[in-house]
Each structure stands twice: as C-alpha cells, then as structure tokens.
C-alpha cells in the first residue's frame, strides 16, 4: 500500500471511529439483483452494462431529486448521499 493511502486510512480510523463508510462493492452486488434480467429487454428492468459512471451517477441523482419519473429508483437513491451515489456509480461502471 502507498504511504499516502496508508496515512489517509490512519486518519480515517482516528478521526471517524463511528463513521459508517459505505462499501460500494456490497451496494453494487445488491443493485444487480434486479439489473440482471436478460430475458425481457423491452418490458424489463434496464441493464446497467455498458453505461458510463457519469451516466449512472446522473441517473441516480435525477432519481434522488425527483427529476426523472420512475416507479422505484427514487426510493432507493434517497438512501444514499450524493457522494455515495458517485462512488456506487463508479464501482458499477468499472465492474
């Protein structure tokens, strides 16, 4: 591990002992419980494969702030801070 990362980690550990840092991997694993239906592309839940981090992040922010009409995603996106949504979007786009 790089020294700089190590210091950041130590800083986090001492300064934020009860700060529940989100694990984007775990959240993303839960997202694909729904976004993994390849059978019904037209009438089904959209797949996320191939979307850029920026697109996913923008979608999630639009869901969160009710700028995009939707049935479900606003109720999920409101559970995360804007920064968490960014981290989640980046993780999904990379995996």
């Amino acid at each position: 591990m790089q020294l700089k990362q190590r210091l950041t980690a130590l800083w986090l550990m001492w300064s934020l002992p009860v700060f529940a840092e989100i694990n984007p991997q775990l959240v993303a694993l839960n997202c694909v419980s729904c976004h993994q239906d390849h059978a019904a592309p037209e009438r089904g839940i959209p797949l996320l494969v191939g979307l850029s981090a920026q697109t996913i992040q923008q979608d999630l922010l639009d869901f969160k702030y009710d700028r995009k009409s939707a049935t479900l995603m606003p109720r999920i996106a409101k559970g995360f801070s804007d920064d968490e949504l960014r981290v989640i979007a980046e993780y999904i786009a990379q995996h």
Binding site: S33, C34, Q36, D37, A40, R43, I45
Partner: peptide, 16 residues
C-alpha cells in the same frame, strides 16, 4: 410498469 418490473425482478433475482 410495476407488473412488468415484478416479473423482470423475479427473473433477475433467480439469475443473480
């Protein structure tokens, strides 16, 4: 829409 998503979410959860 939610009826379609219900069927899709079922299939997706089974796959997952």
């Amino acid at each position: 829409l939610e009826a379609d998503y219900a069927r899709s979410a079922y299939q997706s959860l089974v796959n997952n």
